[in-house]
Amino acid sequence: MTAELIEFDTPRLRLRQWRESDLAPFFELACDPAVMEFLLPLTTRADSDALAARIKSRLAEHGWGFWAVEHKASGEFAGFTGLSVPMASLPFSPCVEIGWRFARKWWGQGFATEAARGALQVGFERLGLDEIVAFTAVGNLRSAAVMERLGMQEDVAGAFEHPAVPEGHALRPHRLYRIGKPPR
């Protein structure tokens, strides 16, 4: 079943369905060691394309997900941001997470926070979610800072070992953040 696709704009960004033209810059992003520092690697173009296909499929199925982020002024693919039901069974499942990944060129300009604020608004206002979570590897201070700028609170007691990361891997320990639906 295909749902009605949600797309939206923020002041500087367009969050939209993925296009074939996004695949090459997405793979470039996946090859950047700084971007992937706190993520498991996507070592081949086929791996990168397969992830994009899964993201696109979930968007088509639900109408929402990890949207491709386009910089409106330039028309360039900057990365992705959005909402997703995690594939892995996590200690706090069921849940909807918010996540983002941007090419380094777009870092330090507030794009992750801007796109994520738009995604939170969609989650609370259009999807009627009561809570959205975010999680990241313990050392990923940049993503944790975005979570905090969004008003998310760290759930220290909710720290966990990510089951999709191999045991003993440095990225397995994760921090958990939460944000509830704002009062009306």
Rank of each mutant, 00 (worst) to 15 (best):
R104M: 09
K105L: 07
W107T: 05
W107Q: 04
G108C: 05
G108A: 03
Q109R: 14
G110M: 02
A112G: 05
A112H: 10
T113V: 08
E114C: 01
E114Q: 04
A115T: 01
A116D: 00
G118H: 04
G118D: 03
A119F: 00
A119P: 00
A119I: 00
A119W: 02
L120E: 01
Q121I: 02
F124C: 04
F124Q: 02
F124Y: 06
E125C: 02
E125M: 02
E125H: 05
R126F: 00
L127H: 04
L127Y: 05
G128C: 08
G128A: 07
L129I: 06
L129S: 04
L129T: 04
L129A: 05
D130C: 08
D130W: 03
E131S: 03
I132Q: 02
I132D: 01
V133C: 09
V133F: 09
V133K: 09
A134K: 03
A134D: 03
A134H: 02
F135D: 02
T136H: 14
A137Y: 06
A137N: 09
A137D: 06
V138R: 12
V138N: 06
G139S: 06
G139V: 07
G139T: 04
N140P: 08
N140A: 10
L141Y: 10
L141K: 14
R142A: 15
S143H: 01
S143W: 09
S143N: 09
A144L: 05
A144N: 12
A145C: 06
A145L: 08
A145V: 12
V146G: 10
V146S: 10
V146P: 13
M147V: 10
M147R: 12
E148S: 14
E148C: 07
E148V: 15
R149C: 08
L150I: 10
G151Y: 10
M152P: 09
M152W: 13
M152I: 10
Q153M: 10
E154L: 08
E154N: 09
D155T: 12
D155V: 15
D155H: 13
D155Y: 10
D155N: 15
V156C: 10
V156G: 11
A157E: 14
A157M: 06
A157S: 14
G158V: 13
G158F: 07
G158A: 15
A159L: 01
A159C: 15
A159S: 14
F160D: 12
F160C: 10
F160Q: 10
H162Q: 13
H162N: 15
H162Y: 12
P163N: 14
P163D: 13
A164W: 05
A164Y: 14
A164D: 14
V165C: 11
V165P: 11
P166W: 13
E167P: 15
A170M: 07
A170Y: 01
L171C: 09
L171K: 09
